[in-house]
Design a protein around this nucleic acid. Structure first.
Length: 433
RNA sequence: GUCCCCAUCGUCUAGCCUGGUCAGGACAAGAGCUUUUCAAGCUCUCGACCGGGGUCCGAAUCCCCGUGGGGACACCA
Protein backbone atom coordinates (compact mmCIF):
# COMPACT_ATOMS: atom_id res chain seq x y z
CA UNK A 1 0.00 0.00 0.00
CA UNK A 2 1.41 3.35 -1.05
CA UNK A 3 1.24 5.90 1.74
CA UNK A 4 2.66 9.37 1.45
CA UNK A 5 2.68 12.24 3.84
CA UNK A 6 2.81 15.98 3.71
CA UNK A 7 4.36 17.37 6.86
CA UNK A 8 4.16 21.14 7.14
CA UNK A 9 5.34 23.07 10.12
CA UNK A 10 2.75 25.60 11.29
CA UNK A 11 5.32 28.31 11.83
CA UNK A 12 4.09 30.11 8.73
CA UNK A 13 1.49 29.94 5.98
CA UNK A 14 1.40 27.39 3.20
CA UNK A 15 3.32 28.93 0.33
CA UNK A 16 4.20 27.96 -3.23
CA UNK A 17 6.99 25.57 -2.29
CA UNK A 18 4.88 23.73 0.25
CA UNK A 19 1.91 23.61 -2.08
CA UNK A 20 4.05 22.03 -4.80
CA UNK A 21 5.37 19.39 -2.40
CA UNK A 22 1.82 18.63 -1.27
CA UNK A 23 0.69 18.52 -4.90
CA UNK A 24 3.30 16.01 -6.02
CA UNK A 25 2.54 13.83 -3.01
CA UNK A 26 -1.13 14.07 -3.88
CA UNK A 27 -0.78 13.29 -7.59
CA UNK A 28 1.56 10.43 -6.89
CA UNK A 29 -0.55 8.77 -4.25
CA UNK A 30 -3.69 9.21 -6.37
CA UNK A 31 -1.92 7.59 -9.31
CA UNK A 32 -1.08 4.64 -7.05
CA UNK A 33 -4.50 4.54 -5.36
CA UNK A 34 -2.62 5.16 -2.16
CA UNK A 35 -3.25 7.17 0.97
CA UNK A 36 -2.34 10.71 1.93
CA UNK A 37 -1.30 11.45 5.48
CA UNK A 38 -1.15 14.98 6.77
CA UNK A 39 1.19 15.53 9.67
CA UNK A 40 1.44 18.84 11.43
CA UNK A 41 5.00 19.25 12.68
CA UNK A 42 4.36 21.48 15.62
CA UNK A 43 7.14 20.44 17.94
CA UNK A 44 8.39 24.00 18.20
CA UNK A 45 6.03 25.24 20.86
CA UNK A 46 7.17 28.82 20.54
CA UNK A 47 6.79 29.35 16.83
CA UNK A 48 3.86 27.08 16.03
CA UNK A 49 0.56 28.94 15.77
CA UNK A 50 -3.01 27.78 15.48
CA UNK A 51 -3.74 30.40 12.84
CA UNK A 52 -1.08 28.88 10.62
CA UNK A 53 -2.55 25.42 11.05
CA UNK A 54 -5.90 26.85 9.99
CA UNK A 55 -4.44 28.57 6.95
CA UNK A 56 -2.57 25.44 5.88
CA UNK A 57 -5.62 23.19 6.20
CA UNK A 58 -7.81 25.69 4.41
CA UNK A 59 -5.36 26.13 1.55
CA UNK A 60 -4.84 22.40 1.09
CA UNK A 61 -8.58 21.95 0.81
CA UNK A 62 -8.87 24.85 -1.58
CA UNK A 63 -6.23 23.23 -3.78
CA UNK A 64 -8.29 20.06 -3.75
CA UNK A 65 -6.12 17.72 -1.69
CA UNK A 66 -7.91 15.46 0.75
CA UNK A 67 -6.07 13.74 3.55
CA UNK A 68 -6.96 10.32 4.87
CA UNK A 69 -5.38 10.97 8.26
CA UNK A 70 -4.14 13.95 10.19
CA UNK A 71 -1.65 13.82 13.06
CA UNK A 72 -0.11 16.41 15.32
CA UNK A 73 3.41 15.81 16.55
CA UNK A 74 2.76 17.84 19.68
CA UNK A 75 0.45 15.02 20.82
CA UNK A 76 3.06 12.34 20.31
CA UNK A 77 5.89 13.43 22.59
CA UNK A 78 5.56 10.26 24.70
CA UNK A 79 6.19 8.11 21.67
CA UNK A 80 9.39 9.92 20.72
CA UNK A 81 10.54 9.75 24.34
CA UNK A 82 9.98 6.00 24.42
CA UNK A 83 12.08 5.45 21.32
CA UNK A 84 14.81 7.69 22.66
CA UNK A 85 14.87 5.65 25.87
CA UNK A 86 15.12 2.48 23.86
CA UNK A 87 18.15 3.82 21.98
CA UNK A 88 19.61 4.90 25.30
CA UNK A 89 19.16 1.43 26.74
CA UNK A 90 20.78 -0.14 23.69
CA UNK A 91 23.76 2.14 24.03
CA UNK A 92 23.09 3.85 20.70
CA UNK A 93 22.51 7.19 22.38
CA UNK A 94 23.78 8.99 25.43
CA UNK A 95 22.72 11.73 27.78
CA UNK A 96 24.31 15.13 27.86
CA UNK A 97 23.84 17.42 30.82
CA UNK A 98 23.79 21.19 30.32
CA UNK A 99 25.23 23.68 32.80
CA UNK A 100 21.76 24.19 34.28
CA UNK A 101 21.49 20.46 34.81
CA UNK A 102 19.02 19.83 31.98
CA UNK A 103 19.34 16.58 30.07
CA UNK A 104 19.32 16.00 26.33
CA UNK A 105 19.46 12.69 24.49
CA UNK A 106 22.17 12.51 21.84
CA UNK A 107 22.53 9.91 19.09
CA UNK A 108 25.94 8.38 18.52
CA UNK A 109 26.92 8.58 14.86
CA UNK A 110 29.25 5.80 13.78
CA UNK A 111 31.52 6.56 10.81
CA UNK A 112 30.37 4.69 7.70
CA UNK A 113 29.36 5.19 4.11
CA UNK A 114 25.66 5.79 3.66
CA UNK A 115 23.97 5.07 0.34
CA UNK A 116 20.65 6.66 -0.35
CA UNK A 117 18.70 5.61 -3.38
CA UNK A 118 16.47 8.40 -4.62
CA UNK A 119 13.74 7.80 -7.18
CA UNK A 120 14.40 11.12 -8.87
CA UNK A 121 18.16 11.41 -8.48
CA UNK A 122 19.47 7.90 -8.32
CA UNK A 123 22.13 6.94 -5.80
CA UNK A 124 23.60 9.53 -3.49
CA UNK A 125 26.49 8.67 -1.24
CA UNK A 126 27.36 10.31 2.07
CA UNK A 127 30.18 9.87 4.52
CA UNK A 128 28.88 9.68 8.09
CA UNK A 129 32.24 10.72 9.45
CA UNK A 130 31.33 14.26 8.37
CA UNK A 131 28.15 14.10 10.43
CA UNK A 132 28.35 14.90 14.09
CA UNK A 133 26.32 13.26 16.84
CA UNK A 134 22.66 14.18 16.57
CA UNK A 135 20.34 15.50 19.23
CA UNK A 136 17.24 13.32 19.57
CA UNK A 137 15.49 14.91 22.53
CA UNK A 138 16.27 18.52 23.36
CA UNK A 139 16.86 19.57 26.94
CA UNK A 140 13.33 20.98 27.10
CA UNK A 141 12.03 17.46 26.48
CA UNK A 142 10.82 18.01 22.91
CA UNK A 143 12.12 15.89 20.03
CA UNK A 144 14.23 17.26 17.21
CA UNK A 145 12.84 17.40 13.68
CA UNK A 146 14.88 14.55 12.21
CA UNK A 147 14.08 12.19 15.05
CA UNK A 148 10.35 12.84 15.29
CA UNK A 149 10.16 12.67 11.51
CA UNK A 150 11.73 9.21 11.33
CA UNK A 151 9.72 7.78 14.22
CA UNK A 152 6.51 9.06 12.65
CA UNK A 153 7.27 8.05 9.09
CA UNK A 154 8.07 4.55 10.31
CA UNK A 155 5.10 4.18 12.66
CA UNK A 156 2.73 5.74 10.13
CA UNK A 157 3.97 3.25 7.56
CA UNK A 158 4.90 5.89 5.01
CA UNK A 159 6.09 4.11 1.88
CA UNK A 160 7.33 7.09 -0.13
CA UNK A 161 8.87 10.24 1.26
CA UNK A 162 8.41 12.96 -1.32
CA UNK A 163 9.82 16.27 -0.16
CA UNK A 164 11.94 19.23 -1.16
CA UNK A 165 15.56 19.10 -2.15
CA UNK A 166 16.51 21.01 0.95
CA UNK A 167 16.00 17.81 2.92
CA UNK A 168 18.56 15.86 0.96
CA UNK A 169 21.25 16.36 3.54
CA UNK A 170 18.89 15.34 6.33
CA UNK A 171 18.44 12.00 4.64
CA UNK A 172 21.68 10.28 5.74
CA UNK A 173 21.00 11.28 9.33
CA UNK A 174 17.52 9.88 9.09
CA UNK A 175 18.77 6.68 7.48
CA UNK A 176 21.02 6.19 10.50
CA UNK A 177 17.98 6.53 12.77
CA UNK A 178 15.96 4.04 10.75
CA UNK A 179 18.77 1.52 11.03
CA UNK A 180 19.33 2.09 14.74
CA UNK A 181 15.65 1.56 15.52
CA UNK A 182 15.34 -1.40 13.17
CA UNK A 183 12.79 0.20 10.86
CA UNK A 184 12.52 -0.57 7.16
CA UNK A 185 13.64 2.25 4.91
CA UNK A 186 10.96 4.04 2.89
CA UNK A 187 11.59 5.14 -0.69
CA UNK A 188 12.86 8.67 -1.11
CA UNK A 189 12.12 11.20 -3.83
CA UNK A 190 13.58 14.67 -3.52
CA UNK A 191 11.89 17.34 -5.57
CA UNK A 192 13.93 20.21 -6.97
CA UNK A 193 13.26 23.52 -5.29
CA UNK A 194 11.27 26.31 -6.88
CA UNK A 195 13.31 29.47 -7.37
CA UNK A 196 12.31 33.09 -7.59
CA UNK A 197 12.48 34.92 -10.91
CA UNK A 198 15.68 36.55 -9.63
CA UNK A 199 17.33 33.12 -9.44
CA UNK A 200 17.42 33.03 -5.67
CA UNK A 201 15.15 31.53 -3.08
CA UNK A 202 11.46 32.24 -3.36
CA UNK A 203 10.88 35.42 -1.39
CA UNK A 204 7.87 37.56 -0.59
CA UNK A 205 8.66 39.58 -3.68
CA UNK A 206 9.12 36.60 -5.95
CA UNK A 207 6.14 34.49 -4.98
CA UNK A 208 6.55 33.10 -1.49
CA UNK A 209 3.18 34.51 -0.59
CA UNK A 210 0.60 32.46 1.23
CA UNK A 211 -1.57 30.24 -0.94
CA UNK A 212 -4.59 31.90 0.60
CA UNK A 213 -3.30 35.16 -0.87
CA UNK A 214 -3.27 33.69 -4.35
CA UNK A 215 -6.91 32.96 -3.82
CA UNK A 216 -7.51 36.54 -2.78
CA UNK A 217 -5.55 37.80 -5.77
CA UNK A 218 -8.04 36.09 -8.05
CA UNK A 219 -6.37 32.86 -9.07
CA UNK A 220 -8.44 29.73 -9.56
CA UNK A 221 -7.12 26.75 -7.64
CA UNK A 222 -7.26 24.60 -10.79
CA UNK A 223 -5.04 27.09 -12.60
CA UNK A 224 -2.53 27.31 -9.77
CA UNK A 225 -2.38 23.53 -9.49
CA UNK A 226 -1.96 23.20 -13.27
CA UNK A 227 0.88 25.69 -13.25
CA UNK A 228 2.63 24.05 -10.30
CA UNK A 229 2.35 20.68 -12.01
CA UNK A 230 4.45 22.06 -14.85
CA UNK A 231 7.38 23.00 -12.65
CA UNK A 232 9.89 20.14 -12.90
CA UNK A 233 7.42 17.83 -14.57
CA UNK A 234 5.98 17.73 -18.08
CA UNK A 235 2.92 15.79 -19.29
CA UNK A 236 3.00 13.72 -22.48
CA UNK A 237 3.60 15.76 -25.63
CA UNK A 238 4.48 18.70 -23.43
CA UNK A 239 0.83 19.48 -22.91
CA UNK A 240 0.37 22.75 -21.06
CA UNK A 241 -3.23 22.70 -19.92
CA UNK A 242 -3.93 19.53 -18.02
CA UNK A 243 -6.69 18.53 -15.66
CA UNK A 244 -6.07 16.76 -12.39
CA UNK A 245 -7.50 13.42 -13.56
CA UNK A 246 -5.30 13.51 -16.66
CA UNK A 247 -2.26 14.40 -14.59
CA UNK A 248 -2.96 11.53 -12.22
CA UNK A 249 -3.15 9.19 -15.20
CA UNK A 250 0.16 10.35 -16.61
CA UNK A 251 2.22 11.11 -13.52
CA UNK A 252 5.32 9.11 -12.73
CA UNK A 253 7.75 10.05 -10.01
CA UNK A 254 10.77 8.98 -11.99
CA UNK A 255 9.87 11.47 -14.71
CA UNK A 256 10.24 14.42 -12.38
CA UNK A 257 13.16 16.60 -13.44
CA UNK A 258 16.26 17.13 -11.37
CA UNK A 259 16.55 20.79 -12.26
CA UNK A 260 15.05 23.47 -10.11
CA UNK A 261 12.40 25.58 -11.80
CA UNK A 262 11.73 29.27 -11.65
CA UNK A 263 8.34 30.54 -10.56
CA UNK A 264 7.07 32.78 -13.36
CA UNK A 265 3.88 34.58 -12.49
CA UNK A 266 3.30 35.62 -16.11
CA UNK A 267 2.76 32.06 -17.16
CA UNK A 268 0.52 31.51 -14.16
CA UNK A 269 -1.51 34.52 -15.30
CA UNK A 270 -1.86 33.09 -18.77
CA UNK A 271 -2.96 29.71 -17.45
CA UNK A 272 -5.36 31.42 -15.09
CA UNK A 273 -6.89 33.27 -18.04
CA UNK A 274 -7.27 29.98 -19.91
CA UNK A 275 -9.23 28.52 -17.00
CA UNK A 276 -11.18 31.71 -16.44
CA UNK A 277 -12.39 31.68 -20.04
CA UNK A 278 -13.98 28.30 -19.57
CA UNK A 279 -15.04 28.72 -15.98
CA UNK A 280 -18.64 28.42 -14.92
CA UNK A 281 -19.97 32.01 -14.56
CA UNK A 282 -21.93 30.90 -11.51
CA UNK A 283 -18.69 29.88 -9.83
CA UNK A 284 -17.06 33.21 -10.65
CA UNK A 285 -20.10 35.02 -9.35
CA UNK A 286 -19.82 33.03 -6.14
CA UNK A 287 -16.16 34.03 -5.79
CA UNK A 288 -16.90 37.67 -6.54
CA UNK A 289 -20.02 38.03 -4.44
CA UNK A 290 -18.45 39.39 -1.24
CA UNK A 291 -16.50 42.04 -3.13
CA UNK A 292 -19.43 42.96 -5.36
CA UNK A 293 -21.36 43.72 -2.22
CA UNK A 294 -18.50 45.45 -0.49
CA UNK A 295 -17.99 47.76 -3.46
CA UNK A 296 -21.74 48.31 -3.58
CA UNK A 297 -21.95 47.05 -7.15
CA UNK A 298 -24.94 45.08 -5.94
CA UNK A 299 -27.13 45.43 -2.87
CA UNK A 300 -26.82 43.37 0.28
CA UNK A 301 -30.06 41.58 -0.36
CA UNK A 302 -31.57 40.44 -3.63
CA UNK A 303 -29.96 41.40 -6.89
CA UNK A 304 -30.48 40.65 -10.57
CA UNK A 305 -28.40 37.52 -10.77
CA UNK A 306 -29.05 36.89 -14.46
CA UNK A 307 -27.80 40.37 -15.30
CA UNK A 308 -24.57 39.98 -13.31
CA UNK A 309 -23.97 36.60 -14.91
CA UNK A 310 -24.30 38.13 -18.35
CA UNK A 311 -21.80 40.85 -17.51
CA UNK A 312 -19.39 38.25 -16.13
CA UNK A 313 -19.64 36.26 -19.36
CA UNK A 314 -18.92 39.40 -21.31
CA UNK A 315 -15.59 39.89 -19.53
CA UNK A 316 -14.57 36.29 -19.06
CA UNK A 317 -12.32 35.94 -22.12
CA UNK A 318 -10.21 38.88 -20.99
CA UNK A 319 -9.79 38.22 -17.30
CA UNK A 320 -6.34 37.30 -16.01
CA UNK A 321 -7.60 37.30 -12.42
CA UNK A 322 -11.13 36.82 -11.15
CA UNK A 323 -11.17 40.19 -9.48
CA UNK A 324 -9.95 42.09 -12.52
CA UNK A 325 -13.66 42.06 -13.15
CA UNK A 326 -14.21 44.51 -10.32
CA UNK A 327 -11.98 47.12 -11.93
CA UNK A 328 -13.02 46.52 -15.50
CA UNK A 329 -16.75 46.19 -15.15
CA UNK A 330 -17.41 48.92 -12.59
CA UNK A 331 -19.36 51.05 -15.10
CA UNK A 332 -22.04 48.39 -15.37
CA UNK A 333 -22.85 48.76 -11.70
CA UNK A 334 -22.09 52.31 -10.63
CA UNK A 335 -24.15 55.37 -11.49
CA UNK A 336 -21.08 57.56 -11.44
CA UNK A 337 -18.45 56.16 -13.79
CA UNK A 338 -14.73 56.45 -13.10
CA UNK A 339 -13.45 58.55 -15.96
CA UNK A 340 -9.84 57.93 -16.83
CA UNK A 341 -8.17 61.30 -17.29
CA UNK A 342 -5.94 60.18 -20.14
CA UNK A 343 -8.95 58.69 -21.91
CA UNK A 344 -10.90 61.94 -21.50
CA UNK A 345 -7.98 63.93 -22.81
CA UNK A 346 -7.64 61.71 -25.83
CA UNK A 347 -11.24 61.16 -26.87
CA UNK A 348 -13.53 63.69 -25.23
CA UNK A 349 -11.54 66.84 -25.92
CA UNK A 350 -13.45 67.70 -29.09
CA UNK A 351 -17.13 68.50 -29.01
CA UNK A 352 -19.23 65.73 -30.48
CA UNK A 353 -22.62 66.88 -29.17
CA UNK A 354 -24.21 66.88 -32.59
CA UNK A 355 -23.03 63.35 -33.35
CA UNK A 356 -23.96 62.02 -29.92
CA UNK A 357 -27.46 63.48 -30.21
CA UNK A 358 -27.88 62.01 -33.63
CA UNK A 359 -26.89 58.59 -32.39
CA UNK A 360 -29.15 58.79 -29.33
CA UNK A 361 -32.11 59.60 -31.51
CA UNK A 362 -31.28 56.74 -33.81
CA UNK A 363 -31.10 54.37 -30.87
CA UNK A 364 -34.42 55.63 -29.51
CA UNK A 365 -35.99 54.81 -32.84
CA UNK A 366 -35.01 51.14 -32.69
CA UNK A 367 -37.90 48.72 -32.79
CA UNK A 368 -35.94 46.15 -30.86
CA UNK A 369 -32.96 47.00 -28.66
CA UNK A 370 -30.49 44.20 -29.35
CA UNK A 371 -26.79 43.95 -30.17
CA UNK A 372 -27.33 43.36 -33.86
CA UNK A 373 -29.70 46.29 -34.29
CA UNK A 374 -27.50 48.56 -32.22
CA UNK A 375 -24.55 47.86 -34.48
CA UNK A 376 -26.58 48.39 -37.61
CA UNK A 377 -27.99 51.59 -36.19
CA UNK A 378 -24.51 52.80 -35.36
CA UNK A 379 -23.15 51.97 -38.81
CA UNK A 380 -25.99 53.83 -40.45
CA UNK A 381 -25.50 56.81 -38.18
CA UNK A 382 -21.83 57.23 -38.96
CA UNK A 383 -22.58 56.78 -42.62
CA UNK A 384 -25.12 59.57 -42.51
CA UNK A 385 -22.76 61.75 -40.53
CA UNK A 386 -20.10 60.93 -43.06
CA UNK A 387 -17.65 59.77 -40.40
CA UNK A 388 -15.30 56.87 -39.96
CA UNK A 389 -16.63 54.44 -37.38
CA UNK A 390 -13.67 54.81 -35.08
CA UNK A 391 -14.08 58.57 -34.85
CA UNK A 392 -17.26 58.00 -32.91
CA UNK A 393 -16.70 54.59 -31.37
CA UNK A 394 -13.84 55.57 -29.09
CA UNK A 395 -15.42 58.72 -27.65
CA UNK A 396 -18.67 56.87 -27.04
CA UNK A 397 -16.84 54.07 -25.26
CA UNK A 398 -15.06 56.55 -23.01
CA UNK A 399 -18.27 58.39 -22.29
CA UNK A 400 -20.06 55.18 -21.38
CA UNK A 401 -17.33 53.29 -19.57
CA UNK A 402 -14.71 55.86 -18.62
CA UNK A 403 -12.10 53.59 -20.22
CA UNK A 404 -10.41 53.13 -23.57
CA UNK A 405 -10.51 49.38 -23.30
CA UNK A 406 -13.30 46.92 -22.72
CA UNK A 407 -15.65 44.52 -24.46
CA UNK A 408 -17.15 45.31 -27.87
CA UNK A 409 -19.02 48.61 -27.81
CA UNK A 410 -22.33 47.31 -29.11
CA UNK A 411 -22.54 44.73 -26.37
CA UNK A 412 -21.65 47.39 -23.84
CA UNK A 413 -24.51 49.54 -25.12
CA UNK A 414 -26.89 46.62 -25.08
CA UNK A 415 -26.16 45.58 -21.50
CA UNK A 416 -26.06 49.16 -20.26
CA UNK A 417 -29.51 49.77 -21.68
CA UNK A 418 -30.91 52.76 -23.54
CA UNK A 419 -31.62 54.76 -20.42
CA UNK A 420 -28.07 54.73 -19.07
CA UNK A 421 -26.52 55.14 -22.51
CA UNK A 422 -28.60 58.26 -23.10
CA UNK A 423 -27.81 59.68 -19.66
CA UNK A 424 -24.08 59.17 -19.95
CA UNK A 425 -23.84 60.58 -23.46
CA UNK A 426 -25.82 63.64 -22.38
CA UNK A 427 -23.68 64.08 -19.29
CA UNK A 428 -20.59 63.84 -21.46
CA UNK A 429 -21.91 66.51 -23.82
CA UNK A 430 -22.47 68.76 -20.85
CA UNK A 431 -19.04 67.96 -19.43
CA UNK A 432 -20.59 66.46 -16.29
CA UNK A 433 -19.05 63.00 -16.36
C1' G B 1 35.16 26.36 4.83
C1' U B 2 33.05 21.09 4.47
C1' C B 3 29.40 17.91 2.26
C1' C B 4 25.54 17.19 -1.38
C1' C B 5 22.67 18.33 -5.80
C1' C B 6 21.99 20.51 -10.62
C1' A B 7 23.25 22.56 -15.81
C1' U B 8 18.83 22.94 -23.44
C1' C B 9 15.90 29.80 -25.85
C1' G B 10 14.75 35.51 -20.81
C1' U B 11 11.14 31.57 -18.29
C1' C B 12 8.70 26.38 -18.14
C1' U B 13 10.20 22.34 -20.92
C1' A B 14 10.59 17.98 -25.15
C1' G B 15 14.80 15.39 -26.82
C1' C B 16 19.32 12.36 -22.99
C1' C B 17 18.44 6.20 -20.46
C1' U B 18 18.59 2.87 -25.95
C1' G B 19 24.43 8.55 -29.65
C1' G B 20 22.78 9.82 -36.32
C1' U B 21 15.49 13.84 -37.76
C1' C B 22 17.50 22.19 -39.91
C1' A B 23 17.26 20.89 -31.25
C1' G B 24 10.41 20.75 -31.06
C1' G B 25 6.39 23.13 -28.11
C1' A B 26 4.38 26.77 -24.50
C1' C B 27 4.87 31.61 -21.72
C1' A B 28 7.17 36.29 -22.24
C1' A B 29 9.07 39.91 -25.81
C1' G B 30 8.85 42.30 -30.81
C1' A B 31 6.00 43.00 -35.57
C1' G B 32 1.50 42.66 -38.10
C1' C B 33 -3.80 41.44 -38.83
C1' U B 34 -8.60 41.80 -36.59
C1' U B 35 -10.74 48.75 -40.57
C1' U B 36 -14.18 48.58 -32.50
C1' U B 37 -10.40 49.44 -28.27
C1' C B 38 -7.15 45.39 -25.88
C1' A B 39 -6.06 43.17 -21.52
C1' A B 40 -9.14 38.50 -25.98
C1' G B 41 -8.19 35.97 -31.00
C1' C B 42 -5.08 34.88 -35.41
C1' U B 43 -0.22 35.16 -38.17
C1' C B 44 4.90 35.90 -38.23
C1' U B 45 9.77 37.10 -35.94
C1' C B 46 13.53 36.93 -32.21
C1' G B 47 15.73 33.25 -29.25
C1' A B 48 19.22 27.75 -26.23
C1' C B 49 22.40 22.57 -25.98
C1' C B 50 27.81 26.60 -19.78
C1' G B 51 33.35 25.85 -21.19
C1' G B 52 37.31 22.42 -22.26
C1' G B 53 39.03 17.69 -23.10
C1' G B 54 38.03 12.55 -24.34
C1' U B 55 35.24 7.99 -26.63
C1' C B 56 33.13 7.49 -31.55
C1' C B 57 32.59 7.69 -38.64
C1' G B 58 29.22 10.80 -35.74
C1' A B 59 27.92 13.81 -29.02
C1' A B 60 22.61 18.11 -26.51
C1' U B 61 22.75 12.74 -25.67
C1' C B 62 28.28 8.55 -22.93
C1' C B 63 33.05 9.65 -19.66
C1' C B 64 36.50 13.18 -17.16
C1' C B 65 37.98 18.08 -15.61
C1' G B 66 36.69 23.04 -14.99
C1' U B 67 33.08 26.95 -14.36
C1' G B 68 28.45 28.59 -12.83
C1' G B 69 23.99 28.13 -9.89
C1' G B 70 21.43 25.98 -5.78
C1' G B 71 20.94 23.40 -1.14
C1' A B 72 22.60 21.64 3.66
C1' C B 73 25.94 21.90 7.72
C1' A B 74 21.14 24.35 14.96
C1' C B 75 18.95 21.51 21.48
C1' C B 76 14.41 25.54 13.68
C1' A B 77 11.49 22.51 10.93
Amino acid sequence: MVRVRFAPSPTGNLHIGGARTALFNWVFTQSQKGEFVLRIEDTDQERSKKEFVDEILFSLQWLGFKWDEIHYQSKRFDIYRAYADKLLKEGKAYIERSAEGKEAVIFKVTPQKIQVSDIIRGNIEFDASTIKDQVLIKSDGTPTYNFACVVDDALMKISHIIRGDDHISNTPKQVLFYQAMGFDLPKFAHLPLIMGIDGGRLSKRTGATAISDYRKMGYLSEALVNYLLLLSWAPDANQVLISMPEAIKQFELKNVNKTSATFDIKKLDWINNQYLKNADPEKLLFDLLPQLKEKKYIGQGDFDKEYVLKIIKLFQPRLAHVNDFLDWADFFFLDQINLDSVAREKYLATNLSKEFKFFIQALEGLKEFNVENIEQCFRESVAKLNLEAKVLIHPIRVALTGKTIGPGLFEVIYYLGLQRVRDRLLKSMEGRL
